[in-house]
Design a protein around this nucleic acid. Structure first.
Lengths: 276, 276
DNA sequence: GTAAACCCTCAAGTAACTTGAGAGTCAAGA
DNA sequence: TCTTGACTCTCAAGTTACTTGAGGGTTTAC
């Protein structure tokens, strides 16, 4: 019969924690005084407390621990729990390592005094687009394809692009080359559309699949957009991802891109990626 | 001017999260309708949101992110934050690896169908003890030293051991050998005492320093206590700790140890350790 | 008898959201 | 003009494993 304070010292566990374990039903005192409410423990409970602490050390939640202790689980079940936990831990470990890498990259970026682009990973949903793809003399020539896309949509403009709500009508550019080129580049101009309309001329309607992308946002003239691309590509390399599809330049500014050097433009660069 | 739903889709961030960021002052809409309360955002806010997500990806708290964004910090400050975070991450990573190791060990233990001892790491406070140390023919001979300790305390028994509360009077055994021995072992029998009393004969009063110990609880006869020792030592080896001082067998059962094979005994095995 | 040390039961706070209830707003179609 | 459905609002509660604090009873030692 030991009072809570001494039991707490024996096991190096705080008193409120013991009370909490009582409340949770993890470790009930052998006796509770009916009048004073004092909790009384026994040394026989130390092994149980010890086991709780050991399982907690393995990273299990109190709920899991409670179940494990109450169900008097077989070694087989214990093995299952541990295997599961092992898998979880491995994954968290990998995430952490990648986070560490990211921090290191960021530091390097500062050392190099680079413009710091914020590259993040995110999932994007499938996207229905109407596009015209062509081999272009230079990157800047892609602008001229938008007119062709628009005309390709022709009579369906209202249904396909619609009014503001929904992403219908947003423009984007796709680049298909897998290596860097300066001329004769393979690109496409596209509109997001809200419904499938018939192909016409060089205009094709297709679905860009759901993918995970590494994304950065470029603020300002198109002339310096190369830096943003470079930043994302470096990020992808460093994090053991590989590029898995044409990259996208999404025009987040609502006006169509007319002057290439408008400093108020906002463009999102997305590279579909997959883990190596 | 974009409503919250569309902004949420653009950035792949949930609507409640955006509202939460607003509430936290991390990302305020450019306008809030005075009557409807509707939040309106602008594409110009995407870079800020992007930066928030990037910093969150590095593991910073929203509070830290808020400060960083509002203080328009210098690259130097950013470097400081990142260095700090780097250190934190490295440490967490190490902890996780050790946890993973622990889980693996536990699995192995099950494969071997070992009795599972629950080994945990915990800090213990400095301990004042009265002890008699000697070279003993066998481990079991340590019991005979307790009488000598008790007599050494002699007239101070009441102050030193006192009544129940406080750990005074608890008995423990210390083993000083750094390698395993079967005979001529260097051990001590000790009482925890509540005040310093004069040495007498072979009885010495000393302070066991505060250390971190790897600890297991053995339930039952002393004759099988070797298994518990083995379990702790294996744990210490596997976790890249080294033994840093004599190990302790603490008698948690209140009666003095008279019959070695009493199956109701409870003993805690503690090995002081330090990280390699 | 009293003071110190100990114990009790609430309740609130932590981080970063998610979920749900209940109610108001807006755009498009009938 | 009305309705429908999609969208939005606020507010409260839940999540984990505790810690901290308020306010008040109990034991023990002198």
């Amino acid at each position: 019969m030991i009072r809570i304070g001494e039991f707490s010292k024996m096991a190096q566990v705080s008193v409120p924690t013991l009370r909490y374990y009582d409340q949770m039903g993890l470790l009930k005192p052998i006796e509770v005084d009916r009048f004073s409410g004092y909790r009384y423990y026994s040394v026989n409970q130390l092994p149980r407390l010890h086991r709780i602490l050991a399982l907690k050390g393995l990273g299990f939640s109190l709920e899991q621990i409670g179940e494990a202790l109450d169900d008097g689980l077989t070694p087989e079940q214990m093995r299952g729990m541990l295997k599961l936990r092992h898998a979880q831990l491995s994954q968290e470990l990998a995430e952490m390592q990648s986070q560490l890498l990211q921090v290191e990259m960021r530091l390097q970026q500062i050392e190099r005094e680079d413009t710091a682009y914020d590259v993040i990973l995110k999932p994007v949903e499938p996207l229905l687009i109407a596009s015209v793809r062509a081999i272009l003399p230079t990157h800047s020539a892609v602008g001229q394809l938008f007119k062709e896309v628009y005309e390709g949509i022709g009579p369906y403009v209202d249904e396909a692009l619609g009014p503001c709500p929904g992403a219908g009508g947003t423009t984007l550019v796709l680049w298909y080359d897998t290596e860097f080129k300066d001329r004769d580049v393979d690109g496409a101009a596209a509109f997001m559309v809200r419904c499938r309309v018939p192909d016409r001329g060089r205009m094709r309607v297709e679905v860009l699949p759901a993918v995970t992308v590494a994304s950065a946002i470029h603020h300002g003239s198109y002339d310096t957009i190369g830096e943003a691309h470079e930043a994302v590509i470096r990020w992808v390399d460093a994090h053991e991802y590989r590029i898995a599809g044409p990259d996208r330049e999404i025009n987040l500014y609502n006006k169509p891109p007319i002057r290439r050097d408008d400093p108020t433009y906002i463009t999102e660069i997305q590279y579909p990626v997959e883990k190596i």
